[in-house]
Design a protein around this nucleic acid. Sequence first.
DNA 1: ATGCGGACCTGTTAGC
DNA 2: TGCTAACAGGTCCGCA
Length: 271
Amino acid sequence: MPELPEVETIRAGIADYIVGRKVVDLVVRNSQLRVPISDELRTEFPGQILNAVDRRAKYLLFRTNTGTMLLHLGMSGSLRLLREIVPPGIHDHLDINFDGEITIRFNDPRRFGKILWITGDPLQQLPLCNLGPEPLDSEFTGNYLYQRSRGRRIAIKSLIMDQRIVSGIGNIYATEALFRAGIHPIRAVGSIDEGRYQQLIIAIRQVLTEAIAKGGTTLRDFHHADGQAGYFQFALQIYGRAGKDCPNCGHLIKEERHGQRNSFYCTHCQT
DNA sequence: ATGCGGACCTGTTAGC
DNA sequence: TGCTAACAGGTCCGCA
């Protein structure tokens, strides 16, 4: 479910409430995620003071003096901030209880999420050390994408969704950015020149920045930590709009499945 | 090495 | 109306 803007929205919605607080205890109701919740996390995280909640790609980093809890929400994971006792529901797999009666509750129906305890610098080890640059950082440039695409044949959409190339972009924002840049989603990466990569970088930055400002995209079940929905779904120009008119040129928007994921594109303005 | 397809799960929706 | 199949904001592994 969540891509960079959704993860950032969740981060911003919880950090001020929990940074500086002590982790009182963890309540694990179901440890069977993609990677089972470790005993190490259960023993090491409680008792620590939370120094910061950071984001890297689609991961949240809950930093303490002795280690970092890394959290990936997968397709269907979400966090809720609770300030009173709320009975747990189905798929509420983990509660993190802080002093001051504040709880962060992790819910994940499909259990594709991942929760790890990392000691040492989390950015220097797996899984974070293999991630590509943040798309909003200055090192992510048209020239970088151009260089990384030479000699390769994959579709451009696959390239920008590859977390080792650039991190944080998923199916919705890849689709939207390619539309804004006028590039067909299955265009071979080796056939795109550097100028168009520069346009793509601009499009990616714009889409992500606007989505963060609007609190992410709520198509189905994404919600902020306080339960509110995002607003960027109203600004989607191409995703989910098969059969409708292109907002640029009025031609038909098509939907096709490429590599297990749905793509939407305008046959006229995306080449 | 690169690129594809399938697997991991459950809930919801489209289509017969 | 009710059943079944397909699909969903994401990785991750194994095979050609």
